[in-house]
Design a protein around this nucleic acid. Structure first.
Lengths: 250, 250
DNA sequence: CCTCCTGTTGCGATATTCGCAACGGTCGTT
DNA sequence: AACGACCGTTGCGAATATCGCAACAGGAGG
């Protein structure tokens, strides 16, 4: 019993995320008449969530920037972490991510690109793979056991590479290890030639509220070199935690 | 004859932009029953455009990050300009903006914050004031005369400061000046103690596709000092234009 | 243990939406 | 310059999804 009209509108937004579209193309996506698509788009255009150029082609509008900005500001950790992550990015020159666990998924909420011209397929707002991403391991490792098992049970263990963990048991064991050692790695488990390390950010209650990570392609720095970045990463995560009110471990 | 359902959904998004809300609060915004708000929110939650925490409080969701990211990528200029703006930001240490004219309004499509801890009220996705922002002057100055007059005629000349231009005639004269000299300034016309300079970015056809600006609070650097940044700004804008395929002026 | 509060569901009345078909504007072609 | 094709836009009944209501469920707090 939910509004199918709004659902269709969301479909249109997703489609426009793939590029500019004409009214007819959008109508085709809905499998509906052009006039239907037009009537759905009009309020979104008025809200500046979508926009149309002179040639009547639709695209995503500037209100999305504003909403996304507000959404990010509502994620308190992000603002606190920003200067530290920027510094880590500057010091290592590598790609730095910040991710959070929200409603059963792990979402990237900030990203600082590598200085080197390497493409990494990640984007703020995308979900991380729960069984391979280092940030996901860090965040899952802190969940209460019951929820952890529940989440792990629902994962599809897509084998991205030869090293990807492919069973719930293997992942649960890995999470134990991560919880014990206080950091996680992704040793070419998601993409063949990319290694990551991640560390937890804790708030005043001690709960892990986010995970920071460094991701490095093999060609830039081999696996052992990435592990050598751990001290810097842990220092960064500790500093962020401190700014979040987390008392240093005692 | 447009969908009022979608319009209501947009209202909810705007409200959530102001902070987390409970279902009842959102229903109050619509002046509708709780169940109505619930049915509107459900598809948006499924699309991850909104999200709810354990306490059933709604907030903006991560899909907005993804959509905004895609929307920005669709703005070609932004990617091209990014490295140059980053460099200008590093060189001057001041706040750098990139704005574009889209459908009758001037929208910030990128921002690089000042190194100094000064708050500037601007955000990617927000509209610039057409009669005071330096970027707006640059962009309006390049419009065909007819559209320029039409847009100027619709401006509400809110007098933000004592120096704000308050008549269409004054703005049109200013735009002539801007077009002639190839750059624009905002000499405390929007906020009392902030000065800006802006320069046009042109594509291969010579049209102005964006405007880059530097904004500086008086306490950091007085007016004359901001004007002294002009050569760097113009060089940056020229470099971006070149990357956009604009042949250097001959 | 009970109560209160917030969110959730089922169900008719009704207002909104949908598809259709005709209109109008723009662009490219002959 | 006139024509034709194409795309977006509008008005109108039929149909359908939406709305408000009221009762239910499930925690949180006393």
């Amino acid at each position: 019993m939910s509004s199918s009209t709004v659902a269709r509108a969301m479909l249109l937004l997703a489609e426009l995320g793939r590029g500019e579209r004409t009214l007819e193309q959008l109508a085709a996506v809905l499998d509906a008449h052009k006039s239907t698509a037009l009537r759905l788009l009009r309020p979104m255009e008025e809200a500046r969530v979508v926009q149309r150029d002179a040639a009547h082609r639709y695209r995503l509008g500037p209100q999305l920037f504003a909403l996304a900005g507000q959404a990010l500001e509502q994620r308190g950790v992000r603002a606190v972490a920003a200067p530290h992550l920027r510094e880590l990015n500057a010091a290592t020159g590598q790609t730095v991510h910040l991710a959070a666990y929200e409603g059963g998924e792990v979402v990237y909420i900030d990203k600082y690109d590598s200085r080197h011209p390497v493409r990494m397929y990640s984007r703020v707002g995308l979900r991380a793979a729960l069984h391979s991403a280092a940030v996901a391991k860090v965040l899952l490792a802190d969940l209460p056991p019951a929820e952890r098992r529940r989440v792990v049970a629902q994962i599809e263990f897509t084998p991205f590479t030869a090293r990807t963990l492919t069973t719930p048991a293997a992942l649960l064991a890995e999470l134990e290890r991560v919880a014990a050692q206080g950091w996680a790695q992704d040793h070419a488990e998601h993409e063949p030639f990319i290694n990551c390390v991640a560390a937890p950010v804790r708030d005043a209650t001690g709960r892990v509220v986010a995970a920071a990570s460094v991701s490095v392609p093999d060609v830039l720095l081999p696996y052992e070199g990435v592990l050598a970045l751990l001290p810097q990463l842990l220092a960064t995560a500790t500093a962020i935690s401190a700014d979040c009110g987390h008392a240093a471990a005692g």
